[in-house]
């Protein structure tokens, strides 16, 4: 399947979803005005990926900032991954946060608490 590669902008993150390369990554800032339209292709891609997922996939989040609307969308993405995980796909999440960024660390911990997907944390 085709990779989904979106370059980062001032208010949207870089997204790299590539089944062949085994890269699944979100990084940067997310504060678009219209989160639904920006993240629409991501949901479509994950749905298609679920049909034929790799043996294991690690979704990496290296977010430095997201607004509350994006925080809700990220939860929706993680819940989509949870569904794949429940379907027997081997999915994990690696949550990065910048040194001393307790808010970003806590945000990750709260997601880990809500969704049933294995999380690991990395302080960059």
């Amino acid at each position: 399947m085709e990779a989904l590669i979106i370059k980062k902008t001032e208010d949207t993150p870089a997204i790299h979803l590539d089944k062949a390369a085994g890269i699944f990554e979100f990084s940067g800032k997310s504060l678009p005005e219209d989160v639904t339209s920006f993240y629409g292709p991501v949901f479509d891609w994950i749905t298609a990926y679920g049909e034929d997922a790799n043996e294991s996939s690690k979704f990496v989040f290296k977010m430095t900032y997201f607004n509350t609307a994006s925080s809700k969308i990220i939860l929706d993405i993680l819940m989509r991954l949870e569904t794949l995980h429940e379907d027997g796909k081997n999915i994990s999440v690696e949550w990065h946060y910048e040194e001393d960024d307790e808010d970003m660390q806590e945000a990750g911990e709260e997601y880990a608490d809500i969704v049933e997907v294995p999380f690991t944390f990395v302080e960059d």
Binding site: E33, D34, V35, T36, T68, A69, K72, L75, I114
Partner: peptide, 18 residues
């Protein structure tokens, strides 16, 4: 925050109510 994040959907205006 946890309850709201789980319950609410993104509104027409793109907000999460959070």
């Amino acid at each position: 925050h946890k309850e709201k994040m789980r319950e609410t959907a993104i509104s027409e205006k793109g907000g999460a109510g959070l």
